[in-house]
Design a protein around this nucleic acid. Structure first.
Lengths: 214, 214
DNA sequence: CCTACCGATCGGTAGG
DNA sequence: CCTACCGATCGGTAGG
């Protein structure tokens, strides 16, 4: 029961397999449990910080002992890396679709709504992503910042087009983009899933920045 | 040279004293050096996090050894508390003046500008304040959150008045206030003092949220 | 303001 | 999936 296949890696949705497992792709239980480890760890690191949050904390929250976590993760640093990968993947998901929008106002609106929704739906994940970057190893940090720079560039371009179309006041586009991202990301600091609705928040951001003419 | 008076506490600007020090107020060198410890520590904790940033790091940045820091701080937790006190004091400074502004639009504008400027002028201080709260002892945390709640309330009231005056779109005032604070605070994440101007940023926030009619 | 040290914590591993 | 352990790090103190 506890010897599920755990080969090097892969992220796809592996189809149910027949016959003897080939021990080359992770089993479904393994993948599911790994996802849970990542979720639980993001809660622990959000509450206690990356260094203060121990692997015993993570394990205890899953009714395990620390040593058992090493079946799922290579090291604590590896666990942190997986949290960051998940966050950046969520941010980049569906983004192509929004970039294809022609109208500058609609495109900027879609990007802001996307960022607000993505962060508001998983505040613990993004709390670690935004606040505990210092825990990353240099290599992992480089991977993340590269993807993030690309993400920022989308916002800069959308801001520039919006300014040209007189939808936003003219200003330094890098600063504007960072500020729009900040406004829609800060939600992880106060979001209470039992009280606040991600969709309501996302629409609020859009309304505040791009009010419909009355 | 290294036996300056260091009594319990006090924060005022102590006037130069004549004659034998009374050993009841901290000397000026002591106060100056303590302020430097707090500044340096906020840089260290911003870069490495509160737990990973060691007192040896802080000491080394001042050409001292760890043990020498204990002349200025009681403990690492005490140092963190001082960082938080400084941040909240900066936020509350001058705030009464802005609250006295009658016009709802002008008042909200002043609050946003104040928050943006305060954070942008000391990004390291606010990086610790916003991102490393988990390091605080329970008592210190309670003090900080109480003051912070008061600060948030000012923004909520200003947002409500602005909505009543049709200066902001109508929405949940708590959510609006949190979002305005977020927009003007996020700057600590990307501010580069050599490149970005706090005043330009503050005016950008105001322009984005409360654009002048053209 | 320093050197030298202690005690506790925690990531990681052995071995089953 | 566990118990038991090791090794390194670091806050804090003694004592000068």
């Amino acid at each position: 029961m506890s010897s599920a296949a755990r080969p090097s890696n892969s992220t796809g949705t592996s189809a149910r397999k027949r016959g003897r497992p080939r021990h080359e792709e992770p089993s479904e239980e393994y993948e599911t449990k790994l996802r849970e480890v990542v979720s639980v760890a993001s809660e622990v690191f959000r509450l206690r910080g990356y260094d203060a949050g121990t692997l015993d904390d993570v394990a205890a929250a899953m009714n395990l002992r620390k040593a058992s976590l090493y079946y799922y993760v290579k090291s604590k640093a590896d666990l942190l890396r997986m949290i960051f990968d998940r966050a950046i993947d969520r941010s980049l998901e569906q983004i192509e679709e929004y970039l294809a929008i022609e109208d500058p106002r609609d495109r900027l609106e879609a990007l802001i709504r996307h960022q607000a929704l993505t962060v508001a739906k998983d505040p613990a994940l993004f709390a670690v992503f935004f606040d505990h970057r210092a825990g990353l190893k240099a290599d992992d940090m480089a991977d993340i910042t590269a993807k993030e720079r690309r993400y920022l560039r989308y916002f800069i371009e959308a801001a520039e087009d919006a300014m040209d179309a007189d939808v936003l006041p003219k200003a330094d586009s890098r600063m504007v983009a960072a500020t729009l991202i900040g406004m829609s990301s800060w939600v992880y600091k106060w979001m209470d899933p039992g009280r606040d609705d991600p969709v309501v928040f996302a629409e609020l951001c859009v309304q505040l920045l791009l009010p419909r003419r009355q």
